[in-house]
Amino acid sequence: MQEEMLSVENLTMKFGSLVANDQVSFSIRRGEIVALIGPNGAGKTTLFNCITGFYRPTSGRVIFDGKDITGLRPYKVCRLGLTRTFQIVKPLKEMTVEENIMTGAFLRTGSRSKAREIALKVMDFTHLADKGQMKAGSLTIADKKRLEIARVLATGPKLLMLDEAMAGLNQTEIREAMDLCLRLRESGITLLVVEHIMEAIMPISDRVIVLDAGKKIADDVPAKVVCDERVITAYLGEKYHAKSKKP
């Protein structure tokens, strides 16, 4: 039986009067790939920030592996095995790809040669092996997105949260990214994935959570979510929905 790994309880995040996350609750079970979707500005990135400790939520709780991690500093959250990538990639520009990944690997070892070993494995896994000596700042966007994943993968996470890891990629690259997600799961990592590209995310996810204007409006298997009226409304807008209903 799958156990709960992460559960978010009534999480609310306000910026002044703007409610970016409104009483959001959901949970993720070990071994799942869960998609988190929603229109621009729905509050997905904010939710990521709240879960991983970059923001302290206004109210609500975040439980990871049975531990309350609400408001815990991000580095502590990461050490517990929960980490994330950034929508706006943050490569360590002046360092090489290998050094980037080694930095992540140092969470597991103090030794440089061990860190390099881990980095080499991760580079193989993420198809960055031939770019190890390149400066991270000079990579293409696709490789930067890969590096974003590779770097945190090296820390040995149990649950990995990807924020739009496929945005800006071409078809081939998207397929590779999908494949990477599946292989990550196979290697025992649970995934929470924010993505706009439906064709990419629907086939690989076990469950889809939909946010709209900060509120969770759906949480179900992909096949059901795509038929959900509220989701269609959220994505296509009230007007279009009303029209499509008429005939």
Binding site: P74, C78, R84, T85, K90, P91, K93, T103, R151
Partner: peptide, 15 residues
């Protein structure tokens, strides 16, 4: 160096 390049990225790596 990671902190220099991006303190957010560093924190996400457990630093």
């Amino acid at each position: 160096k990671a902190i220099r390049e991006s303190s957010d990225a560093a924190e996400a790596m457990g630093i």
